[in-house]
Nucleic acid binder design. Structure first.
Length: 517
DNA sequence: TGACCAAGCGCC
DNA sequence: AAAGGGCGCTTGGTCA
C-alpha cells in the first residue's frame, strides 16, 4: 500500500524511500496495492514512469459498501471510513482538486490497513461476497485505467481540429468575438425578424417569434423545425455551430489538448449506475463530427471496439430467460427475435427497449404484451425492478451496486396528488438501473481484462460506456483485436459464468476514429 | 460581483 | 426511424 512517503504491503513492515522506486521494485510480484484514493496516489507514479497491475481503492469500495448497507450519502473517503471506525468526527468528502487549497496529511499506513480489514469483513458479510469482490476489483481497475488514460491521453490532431473549425466557422476570432460564419447566421436571423435578436437568448427568441405571429413554448430544435418562418433555417444552423464553437472550439482545445493528446478527467463511478462521468473536457460528449480529429500517430493505429447490443444481452444473461438467451447467442439479437414479433426486427427492438426503459409510446404496449408472453422471465425481471422503484425500495446490479434510495422530497411527492407520476418516474429509473448498471460492470470487466492483455506499448486511450479505443503500433493491430475479443468472452464468464449469451464486439483498426463504423 | 437555475443539446 | 434513462457543459438570466 502507498500512503505518502510510506510504502508497504499487507503483512509487511513499512518500507522507506521514494514511493515510485519502491513500488516499481515490489510490482514485480504483482501485488494488489491498497490505497486511500487512486486519484491521489497513482498519477505521481505514472509521472515517474511506474504502472501497477492491480489495486484496491478504499474510497470507491467504501462508496459501494455504504450504498449497499443503506448508508447512501455518508462520506466515503478512506479518512472518513477510518474516523467512523475510531468513533471520531467524520470529515466531509473533499472535492478532489489536487494541489489546491490544502493537501491533507496522507493517511498513515496503519489506518489504511485498518480500513481495508473493515471493508473485507463487511464484504464477507454480504449475501454474495464473490460478486461484490469482483465489483470492487473492476471498479478499482477502472480507477487505474482512468488515471492512465488521463496520463496518456487520446491522440488529438490540433491542426486537423483547427482546419475543421475554420471550415465550419471561419478563422479563429479574437477573444470575445463570434466567428465570421456564426456572425453571418446571427445577422440572417436578425434580418428575418427585422430587428436585432440574440440567438443565444431563449427569451429574446420566443419574444421575436411571438412578434412574428408564431407562438413557441420552447426553442428546441425539433420544435423549431415545425415552424414556417425565414428565421428558422439560419437559427438552426447557428445553434449547431455555436455549440461546436463554445463546447469544442479553440478555447476548449487550449485547455484540454497538449502535446497532441486530449487529456480528459474521468470520474470513475461518477454516474449512480456506475457509468463513468467526466469532470472536465467533456470526453463523453464529443460530437461525432469531431471524430476525424482523432488520428493515430504515424506507424500506429486505433483499434476501435464497440459492444453490440450490450444492454439486451445483459438482461438476457441476468434474467436467465432461456428464449431470450438463445437469441442473445446470435450476432444480431434483434434479428433473432424477429420471428417472435411477427417477423419484424424493428418490433423486437422496440419491445426490448421499452421493457428496459419503461417506454409507453406508440406500439410499445402491444409489443410488451408479446414480450411478456414469449420471454416471461426477462419481462418479469425488469417489471420487478420497476415495482421496487415505485414502492420506494432500492435495486441492485448483478454484482451488487445499489441504486440511490428515494429522497425525502420524493416520499412527500408520492403521497400527494401527483404521486402516481413520481412513482412511475422512479419505476422507470430503477427499471433502467438494473440493466444499465450491470452493463457498466460488464464494460469495466472487459476493460480490466483487456488492459492486462495488451502488449507494450499499446494503450487504452478512450472509453465511452460500451466502446473502447486502443492506440497501438500497426503491427500489433491483429494481436490487440484478438485481445478485445478474448476480453469480451472473459468478461461475460466473470460476470455470468456459463451462459449461452454472447457479447460480440464490433472491432476495427483505423487510422482515424471517423473511419470506424 | 458571484452563486445559482433553467434551457438546450451533445454522447451512450 | 423512433422509444428511455443517465450524464456534462455553456449561456443567459435572476437574485442577493
Amino acid at each position: 500500500m502507498v500512503a505518502g512517503e510510506t510504502v508497504l504491503r499487507i503483512g509487511e513492515a513499512p518500507l522507506p524511500g521514494p514511493p515510485a522506486r519502491a513500488v516499481r521494485e515490489l510490482e514485480r510480484e504483482r501485488p494488489r496495492w491498497v490505497w486511500a484514493d487512486t486519484r491521489e496516489s497513482y498519477p505521481p507514479l505514472l509521472t515517474a514512469g511506474v504502472r501497477v497491475s492491480r489495486c484496491h481503492d478504499l474510497a470507491l469500495t467504501e462508496g459501494l459498501l455504504l450504498a449497499y448497507e443503506g448508508r447512501y450519502g455518508e462520506p466515503r473517503s478512506a479518512r472518513a471510513a477510518h474516523a467512523r471506525l475510531r468513533g471520531l468526527p467524520v470529515p466531509d468528502d473533499q472535492p478532489s482538486v489536487p494541489g489546491t487549497l490544502f493537501e491533507p496529511e496522507p493517511l498513515p499506513a496503519e489506518a489504511v490497513a485498518e480500513v481495508l480489514g473493515d471493508q473485507l469483513r463487511r464484504i464477507e458479510a454480504l449475501p454474495d461476497p464473490g460478486r461484490f469482490r469482483l465489483l470492487v476489483a473492476a471498479e478499482s481497475a477502472g480507477a487505474l485505467i482512468a488515471a492512465e488514460m488521463g496520463h496518456d491521453g487520446m491522440p488529438w490532431r490540433r491542426d486537423v481540429h483547427d482546419a475543421l473549425l475554420t471550415e465550419l466557422l471561419g478563422p479563429r476570432p479574437v477573444h470575445g468575438m463570434r466567428p465570421a460564419r456564426l456572425q453571418a447566421l446571427a445577422d440572417e436571423v436578425a434580418a428575418a425578424f427585422g430587428h436585432p435578436v440574440n440567438p443565444d437568448s431563449v427569451q429574446q427568441l420566443v419574444k421575436a417569434f411571438k412578434g412574428a405571429g408564431v407562438a413557441l413554448k420552447t426553442t428546441r430544435s425539433w420544435e423549431l423545425k415545425k415552424v414556417d418562418h425565414p428565421a428558422v433555417a439560419p437559427l438552426l444552423a447557428y445553434k449547431e455551430l455555436a455549440r461546436l464553437f463554445s463546447f469544442h472550439g479553440w478555447a476548449w482545445a487550449d485547455q484540454w489538448v497538449r502535446g497532441g493528446r486530449f487529456r480528459p478527467e474521468y470520474v470513475v463511478g461518477g454516474v449512480v449506475s456506475g457509468r463513468w462521468a467526466t469532470s472536465g473536457g467533456g470526453a463523453l460528449q464529443i460530437p461525432k463530427v469531431m471524430r476525424r480529429v482523432v488520428m493515430a500517430d504515424d506507424g500506429w493505429t486505433l483499434v476501435v471496439a464497440d459492444a453490440a447490443q450490450l444492454e439486451p444481452r445483459v438482461l438476457a444473461a441476468m434474467a436467465g430467460d432461456a428464449g431470450l438467451a438463445r437469441a442473445a447467442g446470435e450476432i444480431d439479437l434483434y434479428a433473432a427475435l424477429a420471428q417472435a414479433f411477427g417477423g419484424e426486427r424493428d418490433h423486437a427492438k422496440i419491445a426490448m427497449l421499452s421493457a428496459m426503459y419503461g417506454g409507453t409510446s406508440g406500439d410499445a404496449a402491444k409489443l410488451l404484451a408479446v414480450m411478456r408472453q414469449r420471454f416471461p422471465r426477462a419481462y418479469q425481471f425488469v417489471e420487478d425492478a420497476a415495482k421496487a422503484g415505485e414502492d420506494g425500495r432500492v435495486v441492485r446490479s448483478w454484482l451488487g451496486r445499489t441504486s440511490p434510495p428515494p429522497s425525502g422530497r420524493w416520499r412527500e411527492l408520492v403521497s400527494g396528488p401527483e404521486g402516481g407520476r413520481a412513482a412511475r418516474d422512479r419505476g422507470r429509473f430503477t427499471r433502467n438501473f438494473v440493466v444499465q448498471a450491470t452493463a457498466a460492470e460488464w464494460a469495466l470487466a472487459l476493460m480490466a481484462v483487456l488492459r492486462g492483455m495488451l502488449p507494450d506499448p499499446a494503450r487504452l486511450v478512450f472509453f465511452q460506456h460500451d466502446e473502447v479505443i486502443v492506440h497501438c503500433p500497426l503491427d500489433q493491430a491483429g494481436e490487440v483485436m484478438a485481445a478485445v475479443s478474448a476480453a469480451a468472452a472473459e468478461a461475460s464468464r466473470l460476470l455470468f459464468g456459463p451462459t449461452p449469451v454472447r457479447f460480440p464486439m464490433e472491432t476495427v483498426a483505423v487510422s482515424c476514429y471517423a473511419d470506424a463504423k
